[in-house]
Amino acid sequence: MSFTEYVRSDTHTLMSTALLLTLFEQEYESVYRFIYFRVSHKETAEDLVSVIFEKAVKHIDRFSKQEGATPRSWLFTIARNTLIDHYRSQKYIEPLDDHTDLTDESHDALLSDIDTQIVMEKVFEVIPQLSPRGQELILLRFQADFSNKEISQITGLHEKVVASGISKAIRRLQQLIIESKQQPSIEESLL
């Protein structure tokens, strides 16, 4: 190994540690929330987050080999794969794809009924009804704030697939929220 090569590998190596610490500092919260919103269970989320960072430590050297990946997207790729492993271990049965019966017109009409407060209240009730991919895309886009391109890197899906998937998931989410709103609450039913 030449001196130049050494310095190059050197730079990468020494920064691996810094990268890990930085990633943890900056991304722990985001990763935790990403996982929690998927599993909706505190202890499970904590276990999975632990696994994610352990994997990050173990595989930090692989990061540089991922073309175009940012440290953040690399970490969320691990998070995503960890979630997949988790669901596999739980023998999770994947629901049908996000399906919406709404036409564009009826959809737009209903959209106007959705106000901020409702979204805030209902979204976490209905999001489990999305397909796993829909949940994943929504979370990566709106909770983790990744761009479609980054989500494409994380999920391995084509960018166009990501865009249409997010669009479809949003529409399904809107539909679910509207349906949820139209159903009387228990309190209302008792009145």
Binding site: Y32, S50, L139, D145
Partner: peptide, 25 residues
């Protein structure tokens, strides 16, 4: 709204877990 919802939604307390993971790291 969706973005706000995700960012503002509270999650269970996990500071202890954070400390533990950091220590493990």
């Amino acid at each position: 709204q969706l973005t706000r919802a995700f960012h503002e939604q509270s999650v269970p307390e996990h500071k202890a877990h954070r400390r533990a993971v950091f220590q493990r790291l």
